[in-house]
Amino acid sequence: MPIEVDGKVLETDEEGYLANINDWVPGVADVMSKEDDLELTDEHWDIINFLREYYEEYQIAPAVRVLTKAVGKKLGKDKGNSKYLYGLFPYGPGKQACRYAGLPKPTGCV
């Protein structure tokens, strides 16, 4: 199902991930979160931006365990735990946050 962001139609795969990571603009996260009835806060954006930086550096979407640890190191121990991350992204920080960030589904995520 393609999504419409800022007047542009962007292709997605059958699970709703962007087909082309280079299509991403912040509006993608806004549109996707609206469909999930989730209001994005600064805390959500911290994670989304973190994921984009991680992908830029390593060319992969991190597994949840790796994300949790890396967030703990970068944004503080209180945020580096799955309770906090699942609180922000109830469908799973790996799947949902990566989708908002325009990344592919994390490697090893089923």
């Binding site: 390593y58 060319q59 992969i60 991190p62 790796v66």
Partner: peptide, 14 residues
């Protein structure tokens, strides 16, 4: 083609 050489640097995180 995708340059996946940066991904080897992520192995430590895993």
């Amino acid at each position: 083609m995708k340059n996946f050489s940066p991904t080897y640097s992520a192995l430590g995180d895993y």
